[in-house]
């Protein structure tokens, strides 16, 4: 019988420090077993449980896109140890060449077939950009690009040093088949880009709601002020998607921890439309 609690062994082949505060790193993992690699079929928006024996497991969104085969990437923020953070701290202490465990892919995904044929507005704030990065890389990859309409990205962070995936962002900004709006709350001497909060930028950019879906991930405060902007633009609740976070343990709908109403975020989510969320009790 398959045991869904057993992690696959993974090699840590590359560690990238993403931010100037050094507490967010991207880990590139390759599969130790060819068989595991073939079985690991994922879509943007899914997550995995990163495992370090002796420390525990952490559920982390997959930051790479399945269009880049051979490896999986996770961007992990180190959290304080007062309320947890055992695993993320241990991960941050790793060096390239280490071996860790992975369970997954887990959860549902950004609804690619639903997004196909539509204009997609991606809105991200800070560290919550990881599975959005996966989605963007998926949509702009080769032949996939034709399946989607206009792609608009609004991405913000508090400071320039806190923006993730800087090289990739630069490359995206040069592309003609997508529009990037990168903003920071507060620039510094070298910052030549936009300043302002994500909701304000969304209002300025004012993407059309015609045949469009918006995919929003960020801190609760950003989401709170961004939603009204999209309501004003005429986006329906079915066409506003987000990814929920809840404390998780098993990741497979058994340990009973991450429910919102009758949905387990780990199994029925993490991706929900606003229309779906409004059906659930306000318990998140």
């Amino acid at each position: 019988m398959e045991n869904p609690y057993i992690p696959m062994p993974m090699n840590v082949v590359k560690i990238t420090t993403e931010v100037d505060t050094n507490d967010i790193k991207t880990f590139r993992l390759t599969f130790v077993s060819k068989e595991d690699e073939e079985k690991f079929k994922y879509l943007p928006g899914q997550f995995g449980e990163l495992s370090i024996y002796g420390k525990g497991e952490s559920p982390i969104g997959i930051a790479s896109s399945p269009t880049d085969p051979g490896y999986v990437e996770f961007t992990v923020q180190r959290t304080g140890t007062l309320v947890g953070g055992m695993v993320t701290t241990a991960l941050h202490d790793l060096e390239e060449g280490a071996q860790i465990g992975l369970r997954g892919p887990l959860g549902n995904a950004w609804p690619i077939d639903f997004l196909a044929g539509k204009n997609v507005v991606v809105v991200g704030g800070g560290f919550a950009f990881t599975t959005l990065r996966s989605l963007i890389n998926y949509m702009i990859h080769g032949e996939n690009r034709k399946r989607f309409g206009d792609i608009t990205v609004v991405y913000g962070a508090r400071t320039p040093g806190l923006l993730l995936y800087k090289d990739e962002m630069a490359a995206w900004q040069k592309r003609k088949d997508m529009v990037m709006h990168v903003t920071v709350d507060r620039g510094d001497a070298s910052w030549k880009g936009r300043e302002g909060f994500v909701p304000t930028v969304c209002k300025d950019v004012a993407p059309s709601s015609k045949n469009a879906v918006t995919v929003i991930c960020g801190p609760p405060i950003m989401i709170k002020f961004t939603l009204p902007v999209f309501f004003d633009l005429g986006f329906s609740r079915e066409n506003i998607l987000t990814s929920l976070e809840m404390r998780m343990k098993c990741g497979i709908g058994k340990c009973g921890r991450c429910n919102v109403g009758n949905k387990y975020v780990c199994k029925d989510g993490p991706v929900f439309s606003l229309a779906q969320l409004e059906q659930l009790p306000r318990d998140y």
Partner: peptide
């Protein structure tokens, strides 16, 4: 701490 997240946020 059943739902206490690593960020410190607790939905309940």
């Amino acid at each position: 701490d059943f739902t206490l997240e690593a960020s410190g946020h607790n939905p309940r």
